[in-house]
Design a protein around this nucleic acid. Sequence first.
DNA 1: GTGAAAGCGCTAACAG
DNA 2: CTGTTAGCGCTTTCAC
Lengths: 354, 354
Amino acid sequence: MTAQGRVTIREVAERAGVSVATVSRVLSGNYPVPQATRTRVLRAARALDYVANAHARALVGGGRKTVAVVLRQVTSPFYAQVAEGVEAEAATHGWLCLVGTTGGDPQRELEFVQLMREEGARLVILVGGVVEDDAYRERVAHYAQALASAGARLVLCGRPAPDPDIPALVVEFDNEAGARAITGHLLSAGHRRIVFLGGLPGNTALDARVRGYRAALAGHGLPPEAAHVVDCGLGRAAGLRAMTELLEERPEFTAVFAGDDMVAAGALRAIAEAGLRVPDDISVVGYNDIPLAEDFHPPLTTVRTPAEELGRAAVRIALRDPEQAAATHHLLGTHIVVRDSVAAPPPGRAHRPT
Amino acid sequence: MTAQGRVTIREVAERAGVSVATVSRVLSGNYPVPQATRTRVLRAARALDYVANAHARALVGGGRKTVAVVLRQVTSPFYAQVAEGVEAEAATHGWLCLVGTTGGDPQRELEFVQLMREEGARLVILVGGVVEDDAYRERVAHYAQALASAGARLVLCGRPAPDPDIPALVVEFDNEAGARAITGHLLSAGHRRIVFLGGLPGNTALDARVRGYRAALAGHGLPPEAAHVVDCGLGRAAGLRAMTELLEERPEFTAVFAGDDMVAAGALRAIAEAGLRVPDDISVVGYNDIPLAEDFHPPLTTVRTPAEELGRAAVRIALRDPEQAAATHHLLGTHIVVRDSVAAPPPGRAHRPT
DNA sequence: GTGAAAGCGCTAACAG
DNA sequence: CTGTTAGCGCTTTCAC
């Protein structure tokens, strides 16, 4: 059994001396029931500490609405904030929130989505950039179609819809604009040799940032060769390693644009270990403005992506207008938060040609 | 309906030209079925993209095992790690993991536990210290009893069992020992005026740390008045505010023991804003060793509490030996990780009497 | 007003 | 080997 000694509606009915139908009516509260019986039933339920069986309820149709979030990991500050946003907004609407993590494994993602179909989730939210290959497109198209045919909806947060007529709602940040802006900030400070640390070719979020970075460079009249992208991927460890190598091999840059704040953390550490100072010797900027970015040394100038708002928006939009929401694309804005990790390049190194 | 167009087992049966029982049997795989029919059924299920209805399954007994974690918030690095541990261990066992957040509100905690009872969760894990008052004790006793009578189990992570014979499993860190050790570390460096920042009277985790702090002081032959506990509560903002005030009013201390790493982050910032340096002017230690603690300025010396392991242990122990596990108390060890935020007190201030 | 009864989709006897 | 059937706990017509 689902639970050995669980109290059922029948026992409540017996104790209250009414039928199960009456108990159901009282508990659902969607049907007029005279005050007298009402209290009798309530008292019985209270006494037995009765809780309804959610599965039975779901089976017959009145189930609790469920939203599922799928992320790579909850320990990433950024993902955690998105999850919190989803959870908070879901709670607001009285929905239940399921969280699943995949560790970045497409197989586990698939299993989890399958599981959510079984559980009857009405909303499945996939969070985070991915490498967008054919396998991905096919997989997501399948999710969307399967979910849709069961009356559920798919939301992609920060990852692209594989096909415009796939019934999926896309909500993401304007990565390209954000990257363009922060690169512009570096440019304005006088930097010309800026390396982008943390590329991840195929990953849509990172690719967009790289695009924005290149666009800003070009917009400033710099030649395409001025761009220097290091494809080390994300994470503090990657940033630390890549920056260390870069410092040894080709230190002819004055600023670093890290793919996200964790990469920036690693880069900062590498620079410190090399005996250099930020921002005096090298300027560094990040992306996302995670909660502890201002506790880095020095406090990090970065792009603020309101992650919790992303999560909230995802469920809000999906719930607000189901029909219209499908197959639409929502872009959330970002802005720069200036702290202490950017300064003018050191005198001898500014404007130095390639 | 639970979902408009959801494919049911009956449709699969029809398409495969067998009975629903047969379909159920091949899908469950717990009953011998000849290869021929087996493939026919599988093919039909595949073609229809059938997924079983988890609620119907749960209703009849074969439901998926579910574990629920309840935490204050997922954006706290520490809680996030615990949640990740629970999720990972649950996934290992093929269990589903539900995450609920309360924002610290007992009312929401109660609602969530109720919800988990409805959902038929077999394991409910409450994470994080709380203020232990009569209301709390009563509430938890009720959870435990209700869960137990439904064949489910309650696990308290980092919070005390209200009563030894309440059927709840307790798994937590030895806060007192950890606090004693790190205070000892400060003492060994020569500090005698150490303030504990982040007390939260009634909160069992913090109270234990304060006890460890006092014990270490006493063990070093210092009088009880040497202890100075600032009850500012947890969080970066609290640490920042409290430290700022402290620096203005009573700067006669040489080291700070922050209740956790977030408080330490705030304290560090306050000290920097006051124009003082860590560890030259003031030493600072934290608690928990969150992932970014080494990116603070300076890298923070702190107590490592393996949070993910706490989460894993909670489910592992609960699952391993249900009978024995109930009403037992498990203490997980911690250790100091030394980084750069502690030094000897500045010459003029060491050993200065009260 | 309230009860009896028909399922929701599935599994597990129990027959055949 | 496979089909029939009886529920799991609940909501919801449909009668009384």
